[in-house]
Design a protein around this nucleic acid. Sequence first.
RNA 1: AGGCGCGUAGCUCAGUUGGUUAGAGCGCACGACUGAUAAUCGUGAGGUCGGCAGUUCAAAUCUGCCCGUGCCUACCA
Length: 920
Amino acid sequence: MDYKETVFLPKTEFPMKAGLPRKEPEILQDWDDINIYQKLRESRKGQEKYILHDGPPYANGNLHIGTALNKILKDIINRYQSMLGKDANYVPGWDCHGLPIEWKIEEQYRKKGKDKDAVPVIEFRKECREFAKKWMDIQSKEFQRLGVCGNFANPYTTMTYAAEASIANEMGKFLLNGGLYRGSKPVMWSVVEKTALAEAEIEYEDHKSTTIYAKFNVKETNFEEIKGANVVIWTTTPWTMPGNRAVAFSKNINYVLLKITKTNENSLAMINQKIIIAKDLLKEVTHNCKIIEWEELLEIKGEKFQDVVLSHPLSDHGYDHNVRMLPAEFVTVDQGTGFVHIAPGHGEDDYFLGKQYNIEVPETLEGNGKLLEHLPLFGGMHVLRDNSKIADILSEKNSLIGRGELIHSYPHSWRSKAPLVFRNTPQWFISMNENNLKEIALKEIQKTKFYPLAGKQRLYSMIENRPDWCLSRQRAWGIPIPVFINKKTGEPLRDKFVIQRVVEAFKIKGSDAWFDTPPEKFLEPEYNIDEFEQVQDIADVWFDSGSTHAFVLEDRDDLQSPANLYLEGSDQHRGWFHSSLLESVGSRGVAPFEGILTHGFVLDDKGRKMSKSLGNTVNPQDILRDYGADILRLWVAGSDYYEDLRIGPEIIKHHTDHYRRLRNTLRYLLGSLNDFKEQEKIDYTKLPQLEQWLLHRIFEMNVSIKEKILDYQFHSIYTEIHNFCTIELSSFYFEIRKDLLYCGDSDSNDRRGCRTALDILFRHLTTWLAPILCFTSEEAWQCYIKDKKNSIHLKTIPNSKDQWKNDDLNNKWKRIRYIRSIVLAKIEEARNNSIIKSSLQAKVELILSKSDKSLFANLVPEDLFITSEVDFITEEIDEPKVNINSASGNKCGRCWKILPEVKEDGICKRCSDVIKKHYS
RNA sequence: AGGCGCGUAGCUCAGUUGGUUAGAGCGCACGACUGAUAAUCGUGAGGUCGGCAGUUCAAAUCUGCCCGUGCCUACCA
């Protein structure tokens, strides 16, 4: 007889080979068929809400590995919260306005030879909108392919009319509460295109500049020795001289006071004149200014210039303001004179230094590059073409001691290739001080939970040190700053009814309304349009996404504010976390989030940044095609995402290996539970000790996993589950129970108890894994319950019964497993010495203490060690000793144990009984 | 250049307030089984804890310097 037919081998349709790339889309279709997102909402109705508010990705390209990480992590969190029974409603969103999309459209124009400036702004914006829509749809499909569960049928975007209206309304709040004010700052400006440029639109090329050494006479000082002397500056932009308001020095530089005694005949410097320059630059300056001989009168430490006031070189010609000397760290002796001329309207360092000392920021330049008409001597001159002429005039008025030319790297527009200038332009700002914005924001940070904690310090110091928020962008694709300025007073109109009319118009026509509605419609009847100027700037897109808490969390009935969690990459400390905090605190006085989780960046397998030029990029699409989304999800869960995480072929292989272990564990469970019925279950108290131990472990695991969910410690959950499957299930519990499952009497208490425990185990394991392996766990679950409407993702993690918890039993089994490991090592040794071939041929002689022996009371040690015979000998020893011999008897043809009772080619009594009962 | 991080076996991760010989799983090598079979079981070899210097009876852990690396300092998101 072929006894194999009588063995209850595992049987399941759950295949060993996953075929995820093919299987996953089928499962997605099943979920779609039952409308699982809606079903989940219904099943969690009335439960505690958990809101992970989605930071909107930018709608301008395919899914990349960083976005995949971000979305999968969010999905794992939502699914785990849902597994805890909460109503974790995830509404995905997209950020749709902004420069990168404008660029793409411009790029298309360039290809077609079309001029952007010739296209009406409404038309241009329409194309941007369509572009964003297209990518939103693509990304939505890509996110869903990853297994992300959320309201993809009704997501949020920053460009719906309602959102645009709401964002404008938010700006209105800052306008009304005084937080929004008009200031100015210098930006990179192209005088050819008459527009501001972003850093990325700039390229650096060589440019020939006229350079000048200009002298500033000392006007006021307590430092007698330098009275009447001249502080000398050097600049490559003579046109900025009308805008000069200060001269910067360094406290760390040593300067010298010189008296010029001999010059070259064509030198601009004059004999007997006293000048001050940095000591280290003495040679260079005297050479460039053709000064041949001089007297060094005095060495001066930089700090001495602290309270000195200078005259402008053209103080006799209309520039009679005071020029203060200010200390600055950016002053060096690399070049120039050791003094830096400060024109707050024409340079970033200049601007911030001026701001720090409350120096006025003069406007001297028109958008077309001409100096303003009212400026003495230079009105109407062009900043790019007339520098030589400007230097001539300065020279005529005796303001220079030298001039020259310099070829240096200089910013140019990538469109027109024309050189750029820093130009002071009016801008709208949100004040960090008004309404105590900074102070309250910092307090709110203190109240926020950060994962990991380091994020708190990072955000805190950024908010603490940041300047006012510049809200204006001189751009087209975005939400206009809905403000009117009183032409007479220069003050913005702060009227809530006007704002309301704008917001209402935006609701109907979108923010295009700002451009194609006659402005009087917003102002009348209270105001006269002739007295007001309509602001044409659009808002920084960070204000858009910073307002999502308003138009998403607050405005949608299915969400709430504050969110439980904001989760993004660590770059968003400067980005979304930052802008959301400021927007919400500025308008509501509270943070829009209770917690912030940051993940790191994805690097290649050697820890290097991914780049096309290095050729080390990893495409999520490739992984989906070759391995499947569950592998990518396992990679996310198995990595410490608080830090930067690595990915590469070896790492993917590592996770597929782990995946196989998990999958085979599920498969073995399904195979062993074949045809398991409710009636087969037995009560806990009747379970064999080994099963009671297993339930204890399930209890422990359940507690641990639930704790870790609350701390977002998924890599720890992953390790714990994997180790559990490997160490405790596969190589211990399953290994021991094979004999019982395969050969035992299916009606016996032990076998029923074993399957009762396996059923419980399966129900726990699948829910533990479901948030991570969302496809595989569903596949396994469906193999078991065969009811597509009853998805694993509608379930919650089962509540382990307190009855299962039994620490004494667990400690006892720890010792048993330790003794088992000693026995197994000895069996291995015997095998290597050819005393036996297989484990079942072994007779184990176990010498151990009385107390150790008592552990085995009521147990079957042969089962535990997977041998055929075990003899105990008690001795007074601490560590058990083991001898291995061959078991005596014949091999049972069915269960393969070697027993004296078995006759040659026969079977054992147990097997014989089973066969009689079930096969005759 | 500054601000904030990170650096433990080939890989993914543990390592409590400093305290025996630094752990786990995977992978690898060797072996077993052929009734979880492109699976499963057993045994084993892998580490100057990025480097150097210090504090201490004692350092992966605390301090300083250095090296490597990532994010941020954009009218990019």
